[in-house]
Amino acid sequence: MAFQSVEHLISCSTQTPLWKAVLLDDCQDRDVKEEESFSRMETLWQAMVDSVDSYDPQRRSASGLSGGQGAKMEGVEHTLCGPFMQQVIATALKVGEHNACMGRIVAAPTAGASGVMPAVLLPLCRSEGLSTQTMVECLYVAAGFGQVIATRASISGAEGGCQAEIGSASGMAAAALVHARGGSAEQMAHACAMALQNVLGLVCDPVAGLVEVPCVKRNVMGAVNAMACADMALAGITAAIPCDQVIDAMATVGRTLPSALRETGKGGLAATPAGRAIAQQQAKPAP
């Protein structure tokens, strides 16, 4: 039936956990058994883990713009962000680069934003020894919030700019992290709302039209933003604007963005002298 509002999503999770409400809705929607839905989500979790673990630091994208940065980040000692956040940043880079190199990833909600969910979940899973069950539950929570975002706004950069891709992923990831720490449905909504508020208006301006610059590094921003917003929500900090209204604002902002800033590769960073130079370089026929 698809959740049309976060308010509805929360109201469905009074008797049953939010992740379970999303699972039950999927079972009804697709006429499948609970085990079938769960095992499909588990397959996605496994593919996310694989997209991180199959990272090859030597691999470069066809353009030569991406590759090797995840390993570089991982190799640094004494980062400002500390070892855990370092792992989050490195994981986001790894998946973003793997995607740019035409590797196999899980769109969550899109390929350009595929680094955000694994970046926040996998380091947490490994450092705290969380179960696969918990990780799959987190994906249901993220999918439930994502469904509302997709219904009321958009998850396509061409329609809504980068806020619809990295922004959506960040909001979904923030809600999922709240679940991983045992937070309430209301806290998930606040975390999602805050994460989306922070990226409202983010434009989609890929240099040379490729999902590389700035996309790979924006996965890092989406992941770090999700961590901060989840921590805020868990600390009892709330968003002044309800999540549904933030999503509606995101839809309006997306419609207002000029086409040059919606994945056409014609505005923003793509239109800078350096961005144009890279695009020209890419347009040259291969030797």
Binding site: A2, V22, D25, D26, D29, R30, R40, M41, T43, L44, A47, S61, H98, N99, A100, C101, M102, G103, R104, I105, V106, A107, A108, P109, T110, A111, G112, S114, L139, Y140, A142, A143, G144, G146, Q147, A150, T151, I155, S156, G157, A158, M172, L210, V211, E212, E263
Partner: peptide, 21 residues
């Protein structure tokens, strides 16, 4: 839109709309 349209698909990159779609 079903939740597996949001989470997933598993795909070859780099773009869900421009490559997988």
């Amino acid at each position: 839109m079903n939740i597996f349209d949001i989470m997933g698909p598993i795909m070859v990159g780099p773009s869900s709309s421009h490559t997988a779609g």
